[in-house]
Design a binder for these strands. Structure first.
Lengths: 338, 338
DNA sequence: GGTAGCACTCGGACACCTCGAGTGCCAATC
DNA sequence: GATTGGCACTCGAGGTGTCCGAGTGCTACC
């Protein structure tokens, strides 16, 4: 048995099934692909592939459908990434260049990816943990409220209002602002909490409650926002795929709102050393996502501070999706660096 | 013919249909409601209601189903708003009180409403137009980039990075910061653009490009962000409603991503003078939303700067939905005022 | 190892039937 | 005049039987 041909057959099955969404049989296969052998031979190969767990029959005497394992082999060894066309690349660049700030870039990127792949796009915000602090601003809102604004060198801005019992003294606030900035600017965010903890002692006892409130607010904000956030676009694409609705979409929609699940998944995928990662069906380790696959890629510099990805039915066009995800991630990195 | 009874019949039909999701017939109606007449009488009444366009038969010899017009009459004249239970009210208060800033309040409110109503919740961000400016902060990011942070008295913070050709001089930036704040703080945002336009002349010619860039950025940000934004939660609830899927949900999901449509709709609903507004099916004037209704209520002070609402199939439980929407809107107003 | 032929299986489509829910109408009754 | 009971009629849902085609697995053969 020609081992090579067996893989060719698997590739042909995946490619056909992705297009037709119907179980593919031996005759159709030889008609649409130049495999150079007869249907009967294909049938033997398919029997072997089924024994090995790469394909299954939905029912006796139907065609074959790839399993998660089959898709996995396909993306690992059989798929060739289709490069995007020049116009596509140009469109990506132009669309992302129009952005005005970090939020806008991320927002545009995720919409763009949803559009390109016709699937659900997800993007994880750049992590605060690895960013450095650029500036902390304290703004007196009224006598008893102080607004803390935290600006990182990745261009991200976080805010938090704190309430204090004592009336705010402008000179104390000014001193506090100066000291907080002196003590923390330029440090990585995860180093800052320690510095802030020592700060109250440097102030007069009567001002310490305020100082503690502010440093606590900064620390908490960093801790809390350090836990990443996700933005999703293109959920309508999930439902669009005709009435076939093979994928139960209510659980998937719930998973998309449950950011925790996706965050875990994306951070797991960050372990992969290659420049993109794929999780297929049950590989997500999360039952409601059994019917979907996720392709993601890191972006944001050498250390890849966050990920962007596309999510769709396991029967997706992997080569095209991978190409789009990688392309958008690269443009994103370039823009954030520039 | 007793006019009152006819309305009772309509109310009974709506109530039953909302629960069973099946066309309701004359016999079941008299069984489940104490109408005091026989099915034959009900049939006569139903024939009249059908002539008048309040109900229809999906096909001959099936029960009746309310039309949009029928639901409209129901909410206008027949529905009594069910007050929420005390524990429900308490839960709302507790959940919203935990919020740390404006974003967080809005985010929690919309999730809460989705949870309460088991429908899709939408919330419109408080408008910048009617807010007053609290503070503008300029932060030098590096030699050629300046970050502009705009803080309103509603607690909202907007940011924007601008790039300049000339290297930034710290003293010029400081002066600019002082002047911009002096000229604009306390004004309503829509009055600010005029003031900013006069500003460049007050600086030395060589600094004017920078000044212009900054004032332009502020103006643009206000203009752009003045166009409201919408946050959605609970999309999974759309799909959850069993496999009946009477509502085509792909178009609805698209409409939810097309914020423009919802923004228009919400601002139209703001015209209503009552403290909540309802749009039923085709009343939305937007074909893809033909199968859904929206209940919304203003929040954020006497002038009701924005709206929050719930969206679900036209066959929704209007009294319960209205109660939840109003309750959440009220708590939201209270918290934003406090 | 590859191929051809053949019997077998199964799901989908179609036609047909029955059953029950619900209506509309009419004559009888309050 | 409003209400009611009775009755014929309609229609969809669901079950059954049949047919057809697609696809397989097996075996004998090259």
């Amino acid at each position: 048995m020609a081992e090579d041909r067996k893989l060719d057959v698997l590739r042909a099955i995946v490619e056909d099934y992705v297009v037709t969404r119907e179980p593919v049989g031996s005759r159709g296969l030889v008609e649409r692909h130049s495999l150079g052998v007869s249907p009967a031979t294909i049938r033997n190969d398919m029997a072997v592939l089924e024994d090995e767990g790469y394909i299954v029959q939905p029912h006796t005497s139907a065609g074959r459908v790839p399993t998660d394992k089959g898709y996995r082999l396909f993306v690992d060894r059989l798929a060739e990434v289709k490069p995007l066309s020049a116009p596509e690349k140009r469109a990506i660049g132009q669309f992302l260049d129009g952005a005005v700030d970090l939020d806008d870039v991320v927002d545009r990127a995720v919409r763009l990816l949803a559009q390109l792949t016709q699937q659900v796009a997800v993007v994880q915000y750049p992590s605060l943990r690895t960013a450095a602090l650029r500036h902390v601003e304290l703004v007196v809102v009224d006598e008893h409220r102080l607004l803390v604004v935290i600006i990182t060198d990745s261009g991200r801005v976080e805010q938090r209002t704190i309430a204090v019992d004592e009336a705010l003294a402008l000179d104390v606030v000014a001193e506090l602002r100066a000291r907080v900035n002196a003590a923390t600017v330029g440090l990585r965010l995860d180093q800052i909490t320690v510095r802030l903890a020592e700060m109250p002692e440097q102030f007069r006892p009567e001002d310490q409650p305020l100082v503690r409130a502010v440093t606590a607010a900064v620390s908490e904000t960093l801790d809390q926002e350090g836990e990443e956030r996700i933005v999703v676009a293109g959920t309508a694409n999930l439902a669009r795929r005709g009435a076939d609705g093979a994928v139960m979409l209510s659980p998937v929609l719930e998973a998309l709102e449950e950011q925790v699940v996706l965050l875990r998944l994306l951070s797991e995928m960050a372990q992969d050393t290659t420049d993109f990662a794929v999780r297929i069906g049950h590989e997500t380790q999360y039952e409601p996502l059994a019917g979907v696959s996720i392709v993601s890629s890191g972006y944001g510099g050498q250390t890849a501070v966050a990920r962007i990805g596309a999510l769709g039915p396991t029967r997706m066009d992997y080569p095209a999706t991978i190409a789009s995800v990688r392309a958008v991630a690269r443009y994103l990195s370039r823009i954030l660096a520039g």
